[in-house]
Structure formats: C-alpha cells, structure tokens
Write a protein that binds this DNA or RNA. Structure first.
Lengths: 226, 226
DNA sequence: GCAAAAGTGTTCTATCTACACCCATGT
DNA sequence: ACATGGGTGTAGATAGAACACTTTTGC
C-alpha cells in the first residue's frame, strides 16, 4: 500500500485515522481491547486499535480492517462514535481520528498481534493503563454512549454468545449499570420485547435447577425501544 | 491562508471539511440553511455551508468559522453529528466531511453571502432543492438526530427567541413532530421541567387574552431528561 | 357580544417498582 | 437433606394520555 512517491497538495492536509473502542464482558467485568504500540510516538504505551485510512477505503471498512489486522477480531457490531480532531492530539502531524465503538460477544476472542501492534490485550474498563494520545477520552466517550444506549435499545444483546440463559443476560446488564436488578422484573422485560426465543434446550451448570437456553431472534438487529 | 508551496506526504492524505446543517423554525416550518455554490463541482447547486479544515484549527472552530464566513450566522448551538467519508463523495479528491448540526432561534438571522458562496437562503426541510455531494443524506441524518433528541432533551428550546409564550413553545414542538399536541399536557410538562421562568410581562397579539411571557432559566444549557 | 387564543384539573390507563417463595438439580 | 441458582405473580406507585370549559382581550 505504501508507495515511494510523494503525495502533494496545494493546501496542507491532515492525516485521517480510525480508532476502535471494543468492549466485551469477560470475567464478570466490562473490558476494553488495547494494543501496545511498537513505534513512536508513545512507544510501548497502550492504545486503541486503529490506524491510517487508505485513500480508497471507506471509513467503516478502515475501522474493521485495522481492528482485524491488529487484533484478529472481526465480525462484530461496529458503530461510528465521534470524530476527534484537536490540533495537538498527535505530535507527529495533524491527525483527525474517526472513532468507532464496537461490542463483542464474551466468547473467547482469539487475539493475535499484528504488524503495528506488539501485543493486544483486554483491560477492565475500571482499571485502564495510561493510554497514548487522547485515547482515554475516546474510551470514556464510548462508554457514555454505551450506557446511554442501554435505556432505549437492545445494544447490550451484542455481548451475548449464540445461546444464553436469562440469568446470563441479566448479569450483563448488572455489570453494565453496576447495580443489582430485580430478577422477576428483568425477565418480564426481556421476554416482552420479543428479541429472544427458547431453543428448547436446558443448560446444566452446577448442583441446581437447569436453566432454559435462549437465542436471539435476529442476531444482527438492534432494536430501539419505546 | 493559501500558500503557493506544495504540501507533500509519504502517503496520500484525504482532505477534511466540516459541513453544517442549520435548522431553524420560520414561517411555521422547519427550515434549513443552504448556500449556492459558485465554483465547480456542483456549480450553481445548493449545498450545506462548510469548507476545508485549516491545518491548525479545531474541528468545532472550523464548523463555526465556515458558517460565519459563508452565511454571517454565529453564536448558535453546534453539535458534532457524524463523519461522512464515502470514497467517491467528492469528484475532486478524497474528502472526509465532519458534519455538524446547529439550531438557530427563529429570530430573523441576517444572511450574507461570503467568499465561497454566491448566496445563502433558508429552505423548508420538506421542500429541499437538489443538493451537491451527499448533502441530502447529511441533512436527513441531522433531522433524525434532532427528532430523536426531542424525546429526552430540551434541545428544541434552542429554537426559542429571548422571550416567548408557552403557545409559541408548543408550536415549535408541533412543527417538529408534525402533529398536534394537547395544550394542557404540554404546559404541565413545560412548567415541570424547570427550564423556563416568567418574565412577569404579558404579550398582546390580537383580539384575545394576552399571553404570559417566559424566558429560559439558562439559555446555554441543554438538559437531558429522565 | 363575538371571535380568538390563553389558561386551567381530573380521570383513566399503562408502565414501572417492590417484593417472597417454590422448583429442579448435584452432592 | 441441603445448598444453589432457576423460575414465577401480584399489588401499589408513578407517569403519560385523554378530555372541555372559562378567561381576557380587540374589534
């Protein structure tokens, strides 16, 4: 993709990148995917997966590509978040970053290091390391968006694996809002919104009554409620 | 700002612009501010006010500056909307547009033509002319955002002039949702959310009972409800 | 005195909240 | 038999929706 010719313009052009905030729920906590930077600036620092937009590539594709290249993560819900363009946010040159946020099922995502990243790892949202650039701000903007969407959409269902129990779904919500939720009210709601259906199977998971197993009626649809 | 030297990069860089969708309510209709393009591409076509980002300028400032330069409109509520970056959205070169949306009080805004715009004018949202680039899509995205924010914020109060009557406020909402609203319920709501206060004055406006005049308790605050 | 918009309460309905016990299983 | 999480219904509170008449003015 790199060509050894210069690309010249009559006016200065900023660089454009995409950065992706990937959330998942693992080990009973909301976690965020970070990569360790191999080159300057912020060498060795943790940062969001992301990188420069190819000149013939759509923004959404760029976000998906960078994520795949740097972490091996693909096929997840990806939504444009906000664009960050403070003049001094990158010491190298003017960089405009179109940030995305993504939600991944809790299923063990195999992480692999890519070209631009020495390492990729999950960090608990409440225990993030120091981050490169303005990535801390981007992550917190993404978190605000996630939490506010809980109220009026089924976005949190994107955290679910193929099949799940209602207790697992409830646990996701409890982790996200960081508060206990009434079991009966939650189940009433979850069954009323018509987004899940029984598989007919039961899941045995310890010395107690087995749980009914559900699946999403439409995995790729996020419903807006009310 | 134009310098006659070339600006060269090892990799191709897209251009970055901001475009602003300004809404107001005039003549009992939601209207949008457009400018007529003087140069190619889309010469003579109507388009959103906006233009290229200066290399040392924040995105928000760019949006405000372009709006001011092209239309004379300043000091209004401005919020980043979404970034549009389809590969072929501009025939000249790759252009990433960070779109903003803005709400202006109905007070007659004095429009003036600027350098890049032959003309600036308001168009009813439901009777837009053919637009340059993907600006039609940007406007409709902005409209969706506006309408969805009505439900959970006081964003529509940005359409209000310094002082107003409750009937005027109700009319704004009726125009935005394009449906009649119950007067008693609306007034109960409007007074309950603590965003308006009486000025003590009355407004006479025809052969009927005068209306109480209100002002916003805090003009610059948009409240998120519930 | 009439036309026209301002102003005002109550009832009904739907939704959300709080809350406690039995069920099915593994050990 | 007991420990553990799965599963279920009802009553009270709250918020939203429906609805009609009196008031004040200009002409």
């Amino acid at each position: 993709m790199s060509r050894n010719v210069d690309h010249c313009y009559a006016y200065p052009h900023p660089a454009v990148t995409t950065d992706v905030v990937v959330f998942t729920i693992r080990d009973e906590r909301l976690q965020t995917l970070l990569i360790r930077r191999v080159g300057p600036p912020f060498e060795g620092c943790w940062a969001l997966p992301g990188g420069f937009l190819d000149i013939d590539e759509d923004l959404d594709r760029c976000a998906a590509r960078e994520l795949r290249e740097e972490t091996g993560v693909a096929d997840l819900y990806l939504e444009q978040l906000c664009t960050f363009g403070a003049v001094d946010r990158d010491p190298r040159e003017r960089v405009i970053s179109v940030a995305y946020f993504a939600l991944a099922p809790a299923a063990r995502l195999q992480l692999k290091a890519g070209d631009d990243a020495a390492d990729a790892a999950w960090f608990p949202f409440h225990a993030l390391p120091p981050l490169a650039f303005d990535h801390d701000r981007i992550i917190h903007t993404a978190h605000e968006r996630l939490v506010s969407k809980l109220d009026y959409s089924t976005i949190a269902f994107q955290f679910l694996p193929e099949t799940f129990t209602l207790s697992e779904l409830q646990r996701i919500y409890e982790i996200l809002v960081d508060a206990p939720i009434d079991k009966r009210n939650f189940r009433k709601w979850a069954l009323a919104i018509q987004q899940v259906e029984e598989t007919g199977e039961l899941r045995r998971h310890g010395s107690h009554r087995p749980a009914r197993v559900y699946r999403l009626t439409d995995r790729n649809r996020i419903t807006y409620l009310k």
